[in-house]
């Protein structure tokens, strides 16, 4: 995205006040954004039951910069891409990995976050210590939700690139994969660092993180194909990258925020 890069370079040199002027003004247009609230810390319910997270903060800032009104709706992850693809909602957000096969159904914004996966195992796991030693032992199993980032990282970076590999046990929710890990049905779950740390803290020694960080997946917002929101959203994301807003959000939600409190 040469345009975005150029824009970002320009913006980084200009003063903050100039940023808002360069962005499109959508004149208070209402956009309906759909999410599930099941992907901490991007969007989740806090202890009081309020929907909060990185993406909510980012959208609030984008709404301010583009002058749009955001209305939130909820849908499950399984149903999200079809629903957005059909144009039932203007935008979907839930840490969605930008992938070519998905681009046939929806348009993506530029990446606003790059995620790295960690390997979560039971606290007493001693049979493997990293991705290579996990892959080498055919008796070891991993759990994943089909069609999610951890699933693809598991297939292409940990195992052999076969999406039907019987060593991957599929579960409908992320929580079920963690329960399967605790119960001993599987030996490995991949998750991003924040959620991993949250589960390890809450497990009282039952879970731990091993090995190196894996995979770099770029997250984007999704839109119905041909949506006129993509260009303004990209401009807003670029401006927030340039002025440090995204870095501040990363610090707030990935470092400072205490999950599971």
């Amino acid at each position: 995205m040469r345009l975005t890069a150029a824009l970002a370079a320009t913006l980084s040199l200009t003063a903050l006040s100039a940023v808002a002027q360069d962005l499109p003004d959508l004149a208070g247009k209402e956009i309906v954004v759909v999410t599930e609230n099941a992907y901490p810390p991007l969007q989740f319910l806090d202890a009081s039951g309020a929907a909060v997270g990185w993406e909510y903060d980012a959208m609030a800032e984008i709404a301010k910069r583009l002058n749009v009104t955001v209305k939130y709706e909820n849908i499950s992850w399984d149903a999200m891409i079809p629903a957005v693809s059909e144009g039932q909602y203007d935008m979907g957000m839930t840490g969605i990995t930008i992938r070519d096969d998905r681009k046939e159904q929806v348009d993506f914004s530029d990446s606003y976050m790059t995620s790295e996966m960690v390997m979560m195992v039971r606290g007493d796991e001693a049979r493997f210590t990293d991705a290579k030693s996990f892959a080498a032992d055919d008796t070891l199993l991993m759990a994943a939700q089909p069609g999610t980032t951890p699933f693809y990282v598991g297939v292409y970076e940990v195992l052999d690139g076969n999406e039907a590999n019987p060593r991957i046990k599929l579960f409908e929710t992320f929580g079920a994969t963690v329960e399967a890990l605790k119960a001993g049905d599987v030996d490995l779950v991949l998750t991003d660092g924040t959620a991993g740390a949250g589960y390890v803290d809450a497990s009282g020694g039952g879970l731990k993180i091993v090995g190196e960080k894996l995979g770099t997946e770029d997250f984007g917002f999704i839109f119905p194909k041909g949506s006129d929101l993509v260009a303004p959203m990209n401009a807003a994301i670029a401006s927030m990258k340039a002025d440090g807003t995204l870095d501040a959000l990363n610090k707030k939600w990935f470092l400072d925020y205490k999950m599971g409190g």
Partner: peptide, 13 residues
């Protein structure tokens, strides 16, 4: 559904 998302956030299934 609220149980599902609550557990996803508080890690207490």
């Amino acid at each position: 559904q609220l149980a599902k998302v609550t557990a996803a956030g508080n890690f207490r299934y």
